[in-house]
Amino acid sequence: MKQLFRQMTLMVITCGFITAAQATTPEEDLAAFQKFYKKRFPNVETSDFVNGAYSIDPVGRENWEAIEEFPPYEPFIDEGQAMWEKPFANGKTYKDCFPDGPAIAGKYPQWDKEKGMVMTLPLALNNCREANGEKPMKYKKGSINSILSYISFESRGQITNVEIPSDDPAALQAYEDGKKFYYSRRGQLNFSCAHCHLQNAGMILRTETLGPALGHTTHFPVYRSKWGTVGTLHRRFTGCNKQVRAKPFKAQGEEYRNLEYFLTYMSNGLPLNGPGARK
């Protein structure tokens, strides 16, 4: 009897804990998120959101389609292929780290249970390099964009399918942290990511159409005309944070990794189409 009582109390406590810590499940978040865009843009096919603002801005789309005829990211793909194939000083190659490569973009970001953290593709690539005695690449600019361009190109058509393993509460916590980051106001201008890319997606900011967050992760790395080169997702995060006048976080630091985990999960079901080209 006493034991039964104790079990009952424990159940009540656990139940209370779960509802308090996690008001909605990732599945519910995903459904609400994607439903929001379907309602706002009823004429856009869900899979077309991978084209960002061009899925909802016909004039921008025309210019973009013209750019895509001679993709500015092409040289980066070629350079990345050479990087992929060139052996490290110890004779091994990336293929030794990633036997399924090069088409592995669809596997990331993933929860690394052993390390207890979100593993992203750039981080995994550098782990491979360091394990083989090579210098790590920088996470925002430079050669990392070439190899990412190649891997993304080879992975085109894979379906975004981020998993949040239910057997590890730390994975759910990482997702929740990313979600909180997304919806939190920051910087002197007091914007959250959601203010522009959810609440006001499709509206015009001066002359630019604000792109929907759905599909934001599918086309990275991205050639931005503004940059004049290809850049990583975390470089873009940095730029966004600076625009709202917040101090950006470290590329591949915990904040941005968790943000990537959440944001990519929100695009589950959408095909990968990187590398992309954007204004």
């Binding site: 002197q188 007091n190 522009c196």
Partner: peptide
Amino acid sequence: ESAMPPFGKHGI
């Protein structure tokens, strides 16, 4: 839920 920056409060 306003997206308008607080021009006075934040000293913008």
